[in-house]
Design a protein around this nucleic acid. Structure first.
Lengths: 215, 215
DNA sequence: ACTAAAATAGGTAATGATACTTATTTTATT
DNA sequence: AATAAAATAAGTATCATTACCTATTTTAGT
């Protein structure tokens, strides 16, 4: 008796993409696309109705992202492997995928060969991350460490003042608002500049916006 | 004798997408995918080597965007119809597509039916824009008009200086860089603040970032 | 060639931000 | 109770930004 084919669920809000993956998985006898879903909710319904071994999911979808979907799948069906597929390989995306503990992450410009490599790795060894993704992961590990130190060690008061600065209040106005001396605000200001490695208020605003420290 | 099939070239840096479109265009006798290309350069080569009636192109591609490709196609082969396919339907994208004068614009979550509608419209009437796109176009026409006044009436020089401000150069440094007086830069600065309704440089930076006037 | 818009620049002043230093008081942690 | 971290504040100085005004020269459009 043959080993059973690996049963695959494809999740993507773009029908074209689902068809693309299906066409890549035609004419072979290891994997079988047994279900498809256009969003996370439909994917979860599909998982309740049939046994699935591997989920291939897009990351950007309406209502529920591939990340959220992965987290739910991992908590309800820890034995199911998840491969996330994405257009972009930026830092934020990769970090989120790591957090969600997906077994694989490939880009949408992946060819047939790499898709099979990923599916095989995931169903046998455990994980698959493309070289592109791995090199970005290494960059993150290096860079994130030091920026984390700078970002996170702003004190509560400093955060409060940073927010007021971004809201266009001057040091004097902030002082009035917080019932403290303008000189104190100035001190906080300079400490904030130093901690965020900003030279001027322009850099600080950009930094605050880029790092989501405000709003 | 039959009418010749409409010859289609698909351009996308994601092989999966090309396969998806091809699978949607299987089993019918109006359109025929006779060529595919993974980027704009290869697409232009393909156009030199064979007759094409309709180009279906992705918008986000490395080296040359679908917009740039469309512009080149339109200047060299004005009789070829172009349908742009995109993930997103944001204002900027739609505006650019209008500028490039593509005959059609559909989203990647388009199903078989809409793809055929688009292809038929484009090869017969002339253009096809999905309802989603049309409604966004109307919003643009309404909103863009008023923000245009504030945003767009920055002069080239003012844009240049705004960019340098955002890059954390002081008025003095900007003056040196542009070989003009610091007083001139100051004047520009104040005009920029007025035109963007910003009270302080903090507001200006936020405004510039929010409106994509920089980077 | 004429006109409007844009770019140029200066005077004068007030206000704001930043640099560097020092020091006291509060608050949290062990 | 001791220590460290955070919040408070001020002195002094310099530099940068903004306000309000006026005015000339360049550039582009009809």
């Amino acid at each position: 008796m043959d080993l059973q084919k690996q049963r695959i669920l494809i999740v993507d809000d773009h029908q074209m993409f689902i068809d693309g993956v299906k066409s890549l998985l035609r004419n072979q006898n290891i994997f079988s696309v047994v279900a498809e879903a256009l969003d996370g909710k439909l994917a979860l319904e599909a998982l309740e109705n049939q046994e699935i071994d591997i989920v291939i999911s897009d990351i950007n979808m309406p209502n529920m992202s591939g990340i959220e979907l992965t987290k739910i799948i991992k908590s309800k069906y820890p034995e199911i492997k998840v491969i996330i597929v994405s257009m972009h390989n930026d830092r934020d995306t990769i970090t989120e995928i790591m957090m969600a503990e997906a077994e694989g992450y490939i880009l949408k410009n992946t060819g047939k060969k790499e898709l099979f490599d990923a599916l095989n790795s995931v169903s046998n060894y455990g994980t698959y991350y493309s070289n592109e993704v791995l090199s970005i992961m290494m960059e993150i590990v290096k860079k994130e460490k030091k920026s984390e130190k700078a970002v996170k060690n702003l004190t509560e008061r400093e955060f409060e003042i940073l927010n007021l600065i971004v809201q266009e209040f001057s040091s004097e106005e902030i002082a009035e608002k917080l019932f403290i001396s303008k000189r104190t605000v100035d001190t906080h200001r300079i400490n904030i500049l130093n901690k965020t490695n900003s030279k001027t208020i322009v850099g600080l605003i950009k930094y605050a916006i880029a790092n989501n420290l405000v709003e």
